[in-house]
Amino acid sequence: MVVEEPQEPDIPVTILTGFLGAGKTTLLNRILSENHQYKIAVIENEFGPENIDNDLIVSTNKEQIVSMNNGCVCCTIRGDLSRVLTDLRHKRDRGEIEFDYVVLETSGVANPGPVAQTFFMDDAVAPFFRLDGVVTVVDAKYGHETLDKEAAAREQVGFADRILLSKCDLVSEEEALAMEARLRQMNARAPIRRVDMGKCPVSEVLDITGFNMNDVLDVDPAFFNDDHHHHHHSDDIHTFVYETERPFDPVKFERYIMSLTSVYGPDLLRYKGVLWLQGSDFRVAFQGVHMLAVSDVLGPWGDRPRYSKLVFIGRNLPEEAIRAGMKTCEAKSD
Rank of each mutant, 00 (worst) to 15 (best):
L20S: 09
D303E: 08
P191W: 11
D281H: 13
E330W: 06
P305M: 06
I163D: 11
A153D: 04
M1D: 02
A293I: 06
G18P: 12
R194G: 05
E46N: 06
E98L: 09
P191L: 11
C75H: 02
M291I: 02
E8W: 06
G23K: 12
A321I: 10
V103E: 01
V263G: 00
T106D: 04
A22L: 10
R83L: 14
N29W: 03
E34T: 05
I57F: 03
Y242F: 15
L27I: 15
T136C: 15
I77F: 05
M179P: 05
P247Y: 05
D218N: 15
N51R: 10
S308I: 11
C329L: 09
Q278H: 11
K91H: 05
T239Q: 04
I11Q: 05
L164K: 02
G314R: 12
M197Q: 15
F286D: 02
E150M: 15
V216N: 11
A321L: 13
E204Q: 12
Y242N: 02
E50L: 15
T118F: 01
V219E: 08
H233G: 06
E254I: 07
V202E: 11
D169H: 11
D281M: 08
A152W: 01
V219T: 08
M179A: 11
F282D: 14
V171A: 08
H230I: 00
K272G: 01
L310Q: 00
S67D: 02
Y38V: 04
F128Q: 02
D139T: 13
A178Y: 04
S107D: 03
L81A: 10
P266L: 10
F120G: 05
L104M: 13
M186N: 12
R30N: 00
H231S: 08
L131G: 06
D169I: 08
R78K: 15
D267V: 07
D227T: 03
S259A: 13
T106L: 15
A176Q: 07
L275H: 10
A110H: 06
S295V: 04
G48T: 14
Q156R: 09
G23Y: 08
I97Q: 10
P250R: 12
E8A: 13
I65R: 00
R30Q: 03
V205G: 03
A331V: 12
K199Q: 14
P191K: 14
K309P: 02
E173N: 13
M68T: 01
P318C: 07
V138H: 04
C72P: 03
R30H: 02
V241C: 13
A124V: 10
M186W: 03
F128G: 00
P191R: 10
N29F: 01
D236W: 04
P318M: 11
R130W: 06
R189C: 07
P300G: 07
E180L: 03
D93W: 06
D215P: 00
